[in-house]
């Protein structure tokens, strides 16, 4: 019963928190650029407006894929709140990622095709790192279930500092922030238009956006696990991490996928492996 209530809380609170974080993100970004920026509620206005627009698609696959993307993202957040298995949560999330790519590939648009291929490269980059992070958590807690994390005496961060850094890498890619925003560029008037998102419009774009909020919450939740012993420090960790994300996002130019693959597979995986060896030895 408790689990069910938690899941419902997660499903309802997910988009609310995700939307607020997105609004905050834009505010802070504006502040960096000495602008005032949009209201905090802006993302909700955006999505509500999109939901009210005319439905317009290239073909039915886009409708299917947008919905599945949203559902998978929501289910993965639900599983997270149900204290489920980290790997399962991750794989459910991957359902959404795969469908987003497939939907983009269904349209004969050069922009969404290129975006889809690059999105695949992003998956290729972050997936192994995330799996290794989960393995690290398993080595510390003895289980892949989130529930085991809450029983720890010491925050995970103490045992897995390098894995947390690697996670940060993976998150930047997953959130498609600069320098890894090459599958959907931030600003829609660049060479790529909006990459994978180009052909999704109106209500379907809104679905994708809500799914993205869920993903943001999932990612923040993962970070939160690293300081599970103290709520105050957990909040500080999350704030610090996200602030760093925004800073990186605003100070970096977009890089190429080659740069990303090499960087992440060498540096991200390298850090993960070093940290894992440490855990195996310890």
């Amino acid at each position: 019963m408790d689990t069910l209530i938690l899941v419902i809380i997660g499903l309802v609170a997910g988009p609310v928190i995700g939307g607020l974080v997105a609004g905050l993100d834009r505010r802070v970004t504006a502040w960096f650029q000495s602008r005032q920026g949009p209201p905090i509620m802006q993302s909700f206005y955006d999505v509500a407006k999109l939901l009210g627009k005319e439905k317009m698609v290239v073909n039915q696959w886009q409708i299917l894929c947008a919905w599945v993307y949203l559902i998978a993202a929501a289910v993965s957040v639900g599983l997270f709140f149900a204290q489920g298995d980290l790997l399962v949560i991750f794989f459910v999330q991957a359902v959404g990622a795969v469908f987003l790519v497939m939907g983009a590939m269904s349209a004969k648009s050069p922009f969404s095709q290129v975006g889809a291929q690059r999105e695949l490269m992003q998956i290729l980059a972050y997936e192994p790192v995330l799996i290794l992070v989960f393995v690290g958590i398993y080595l510390v807690t003895g289980s892949f279930s989130i529930s085991a994390v809450w029983e720890l005496e010491q925050p995970l961060l103490a045992k897995m500092p390098l894995l947390y850094l690697a996670l940060g890498y993976a998150l930047t890619i997953k959130l498609r922030k600069s320098p890894f925003d090459f599958s959907t560029s931030h600003h829609g008037h660049q060479e790529l238009v909006k990459g994978v998102l180009t052909e999704y419009s109106g209500p379907y774009l809104a679905l994708v956006e809500i799914a993205h909020w869920y993903e943001t919450v999932l990612i923040l939740g993962l970070c939160a696990l690293f300081w599970s012993t103290n709520v105050f420090w957990m909040a500080a960790l999350l704030l610090g991490t996200y602030a760093l994300e925004i800073l990186v996002d605003n100070t970096m130019a977009r890089m190429t996928w080659r740069w990303m693959l090499k960087r992440v597979w060498l540096l991200g995986m390298g850090m993960s492996v070093v940290n894992l060896i440490w855990l195996y030895a310890g």
Partner: peptide, 16 residues
């Protein structure tokens, strides 16, 4: 001028 104050975004795609 910061038109983003009003929620205005310059998108590159008529569909958006």
């Amino acid at each position: 001028y910061d038109v983003e104050r009003f929620g205005i975004i310059n998108v590159g795609n008529p569909k958006h």
